[in-house]
Computed example of a mutant assay.
Amino acid sequence: MYFASRKAMLFITSVFLALLVTGFGFSSYQAAAFEKNNPNKGDLIDVGGYRMNSVYVPRPKSADLPTLVFIHGASTNLRDQMTAFRGKLEGRADMLFLDRPGLGFSDRGGPQNAYPDGQADAIAALMRKRGIKRAIIVSHSFGGAIAASFSLNHKDMVAGLLFLSPATHPWPGGIEWYYGAAKVPVFGWLFSTLVAPPVGMALIDKATKAVFEPNQRPDDYVEQTAAYLALRPRAFRNNAVDVANLLEYVKRVSPRYKEIRAPAVIITGDADRVVLPEIHSRQLHEDITGSTLLGIHNLGHKPDYTVTDLAIAAIETLAGKKRNLKQLAAQAQARIAGDKTE
């Protein structure tokens, strides 16, 4: 009986190890394929012992807007904001699109970069390396918490703030289970390596469409934004840690938002099921004296794509130009009134 049990255990162990090796091999192959199919188009710059990746678009002499710095949300990279804005703003401003620490092609850096204030410091260091002294900060979703922290800790570098569906305040409940799973030591590494890539590949089309709902996701969104890069094990786990840390962070920091003095515009939609506007955008508006809140009926979580022209008008307003944002918001709302999930 002892020898039979031992043989059974050896067999089970051998099968388990074989599955691990196969899983690691698949993940390594897939991560390499993601990067080969989506090569880095940015520049890696040392910001203090680790490198941040970014694309800098210089301003021509005819530019009519100040420098713009774009901070992307969770599970994405710099191409998300670059795809939405570059084509419509090129020639009007300097623009800096960046991969947040540990995402896209940026290094993770130290443990401080698992929190919004650490990432804000990293962005400030990158701006200095790029020779950018002051900018309008454009942020989406998770990037909103970073932009708020940036405004608190680097206020002299902020010319204005545009928050698009920001995640900035404590919310009831918790987070999706897989974020917590990916954060756990050892198990999280295994989960991010063995489970996330194949499951993510199967679900990415449906998941990205859900982020846009009830509005339509561009057909080429996944390809244009290199969304598959988020499924690489290291990027997946870094993103999960960011998200898992956010709730406790905003509980601690959000009471300081009343200190923000930069001009700010917040664009949100009442159909956003990713970041609830009543919890985040409305409270942020109440916290930042003089801010403008534009709530759009039937708008989901992606105003950067669905109402891009309104976002650009908000940037122009922050730059001192006269734009009737409420009228433009009403026009955008009328345009998407019939949007619905298929």
Rank of each mutant, 00 (worst) to 15 (best):
residue 103 L to A: 15
residue 174 G to D: 09
residue 20 L to T: 13
residue 141 S to N: 09
residue 67 T to H: 03
residue 16 F to S: 15
residue 308 T to R: 14
residue 336 I to Y: 05
residue 292 T to H: 08
residue 22 T to R: 14
residue 290 G to H: 00
residue 89 L to C: 07
residue 274 V to N: 10
residue 254 S to L: 00
residue 54 S to N: 15
residue 124 A to G: 09
residue 285 H to F: 09
residue 138 V to Q: 05
residue 190 L to M: 12
residue 201 M to T: 11
residue 15 V to L: 11
residue 129 K to N: 07
residue 255 P to M: 04
residue 133 K to N: 11
residue 298 N to Y: 05
residue 205 D to R: 12
residue 30 Q to I: 10
residue 66 P to M: 04
residue 223 E to H: 12
residue 136 I to A: 00
residue 194 L to C: 04
residue 57 V to R: 05
residue 125 A to T: 11
residue 151 S to D: 05
residue 258 K to P: 00
residue 214 P to N: 06
residue 186 V to L: 15
residue 304 D to T: 12
residue 207 A to Q: 15
residue 68 L to D: 01
residue 322 K to G: 00
residue 21 V to R: 04
residue 144 G to K: 07
residue 10 L to N: 14
residue 169 H to S: 00
residue 220 D to A: 10
residue 161 L to Q: 06
residue 176 E to A: 12
residue 38 N to K: 05
residue 269 G to E: 05
residue 278 E to D: 12
residue 114 A to T: 10
residue 22 T to F: 14
residue 335 R to P: 04
residue 113 N to W: 03
residue 126 L to F: 05
residue 56 Y to E: 09
residue 97 F to M: 07
residue 88 K to F: 06
residue 115 Y to W: 13
residue 59 R to C: 07
residue 32 A to I: 12
residue 78 L to P: 02
residue 271 A to T: 07
residue 4 A to R: 15
residue 251 K to N: 06
residue 104 G to I: 12
residue 186 V to D: 01
residue 69 V to M: 10
residue 71 I to F: 03
residue 97 F to Y: 11
residue 134 R to Y: 02
residue 232 R to W: 05
residue 158 V to L: 03
residue 66 P to E: 08
residue 118 G to Y: 08
residue 296 I to W: 01
residue 121 D to W: 09
residue 9 M to C: 13
residue 215 N to L: 01
residue 104 G to R: 04
residue 211 V to Y: 14
residue 329 A to K: 14
residue 153 N to C: 00
residue 28 S to M: 13
residue 228 Y to W: 11
residue 246 L to Q: 07
residue 224 Q to G: 09
residue 278 E to V: 10
residue 115 Y to P: 02
residue 247 L to P: 03
residue 129 K to D: 02
residue 2 Y to T: 13
residue 32 A to N: 13
residue 131 G to N: 00
residue 42 G to R: 05
residue 186 V to P: 10
residue 9 M to Q: 14
residue 290 G to L: 01
residue 138 V to D: 06
residue 154 H to V: 10
residue 172 P to N: 02
residue 292 T to Q: 09
residue 227 A to C: 07
residue 102 G to H: 03
residue 167 A to V: 11
residue 273 R to T: 13
residue 110 G to K: 10
residue 114 A to S: 15
residue 274 V to G: 00
residue 117 D to A: 10
residue 278 E to T: 10
residue 242 D to K: 02
residue 10 L to K: 14
residue 240 A to M: 09
residue 54 S to F: 05
residue 70 F to S: 03
residue 95 M to R: 11
residue 129 K to W: 04
residue 303 P to S: 06
residue 274 V to K: 11
residue 118 G to I: 00
residue 53 N to T: 07
residue 306 T to R: 08
residue 211 V to T: 08
residue 318 L to V: 05
residue 18 A to F: 10
residue 244 A to W: 15
residue 6 R to E: 12
residue 134 R to I: 01
residue 102 G to F: 03
residue 70 F to P: 04
residue 137 I to V: 06
residue 138 V to L: 07
residue 309 D to K: 14
residue 293 L to T: 06
residue 278 E to H: 11
residue 255 P to K: 02
residue 32 A to T: 07
residue 92 R to I: 08
residue 17 L to Y: 08
residue 158 V to Y: 02
